Simulated assay, not measured.
Amino acid sequence: LCRGEEKSRNICRSPIAEAVFRKLVTDEKVENKWRIDSAATSAYEIGSSPDYRGQACMKKHGITMNHIARQVTKDDFQTFDYILCMDESNLRDLKRKSNQIKDCKAKIELLGSYDPQKQLIIEDPYYGNEKDFETVYEQCVRCCKAFLEKSH
């Protein structure tokens, strides 16, 4: 979900995490147990496709990306069991928003909190290069695998 105090755009990190997790649950044949989506804390890129560099990275790893950017909704806090975010700024935004939701069911956490290599923050690769997108991909794979093992 972006660096520093910028709001998340839902075109870099979260669509990569969404696609990685979708592939993991499909490979494990448990996709029917999961509703998987990604969203931004801001309205900045609503309707946009994922960043072309992220798409290229995922294609290289044989993972399909079908995502159009959207913003987190009130309903998300009420229907999802988990909302996993990428950095402290997004964590603060999401927790603040969740406090305004009467019956918030979602557990809000950093995806990086599941990383066996203890890389807590998944940095926004938007201003970086292909190597930065690869790093995000690798972090997402590690974290999503660990999350999936823990959650069922």
Rank of each mutant, 00 (worst) to 15 (best):
L1A: 02
C2L: 10
R3V: 02
E5S: 15
S8N: 12
R9M: 11
R9S: 13
I11H: 02
R13S: 04
R13E: 02
S14I: 07
A17C: 14
A17P: 08
A17S: 14
A17N: 10
E18V: 07
E18N: 14
A19M: 15
V20E: 06
E28S: 14
E28F: 08
K29G: 09
K29V: 04
K29H: 10
K29W: 01
V30F: 02
E31R: 07
K33D: 15
W34H: 09
R35V: 14
I36P: 09
I36R: 12
D37R: 10
S38N: 07
S38I: 02
S38E: 04
A39E: 06
A39N: 06
A40W: 02
T41P: 13
S42A: 06
S49D: 12
P50V: 03
D51R: 00
D51E: 01
D51K: 00
Y52H: 12
Q55R: 13
A56F: 00
M58P: 02
M58E: 03
K60D: 11
G62W: 08
M65A: 04
N66E: 11
H67W: 01
I68T: 14
A69C: 07
A69T: 01
Q71G: 11
T73M: 15
K74L: 12
D75G: 07
D75Y: 03
F80D: 09
D81E: 15
D81L: 13
D81C: 12
Y82T: 07
I83F: 00
I83R: 01
L84G: 04
C85I: 05
C85H: 05
M86I: 05
M86A: 14
L91P: 05
R92Y: 07
R92K: 14
D93M: 05
D93E: 11
L94W: 03
R96V: 10
R96G: 10
K97Y: 07
S98L: 11
S98W: 06
K102F: 00
K105P: 08
E109I: 14
E109A: 15
L110H: 13
L110R: 10
L110Y: 12
L111F: 03
L111V: 05
S113A: 14
S113H: 11
Y114D: 08
P116R: 05
Q117A: 13
Q117T: 10
Q119L: 14
L120S: 11
I122K: 04
D124G: 06
Y126S: 07
Y127I: 00
G128M: 09
E130Q: 08
E130C: 00
D132N: 15
F133R: 06
E134W: 00
E134D: 08
E134S: 04
V136W: 01
Y137N: 10
Q139I: 01
C140D: 08
V141T: 07
C143S: 07
F147H: 09
F147T: 07
L148C: 12
L148T: 01
E149K: 05
E149A: 02
S151E: 03
S151W: 00
